[in-house]
Amino acid sequence: MPVGEHVGEVVPWEGPESGAPIGVPLVDLLDRVLATGVVVSGDLVLAIAEVPLVRLSLNALLSSVNERVAAPWGDGGPL
């Protein structure tokens, strides 16, 4: 059964690649690596040379998840 398609049952990711980067569904991964995380030093979430990029980049990133929609996750969530 493909990892990440746990529609039928709960199966922890297993094997040597526990945390299995390959099998993790991309959308779920993006939910986590983009929308959450510690905000380091105030607003500096994505920072290049101390230039905060976060809002700007996040919108672009989210929209690239699926070209058909401008903002796949809409609003109404914690960010």
Binding site: E17, S18, G19, A20, R32, V33, L34, L46, S57
Partner: peptide, 24 residues
């Protein structure tokens, strides 16, 4: 995203780990 996750998962397997956002 997957490269980021792979590192975080590897560290977290052996120590309490706070992931930082992609591209910090």
């Amino acid at each position: 995203a997957r490269a980021h996750h792979a590192v975080i998962a590897a560290v977290a397997a052996g120590a309490p780990t706070v992931p930082l956002p992609l591209a910090t």
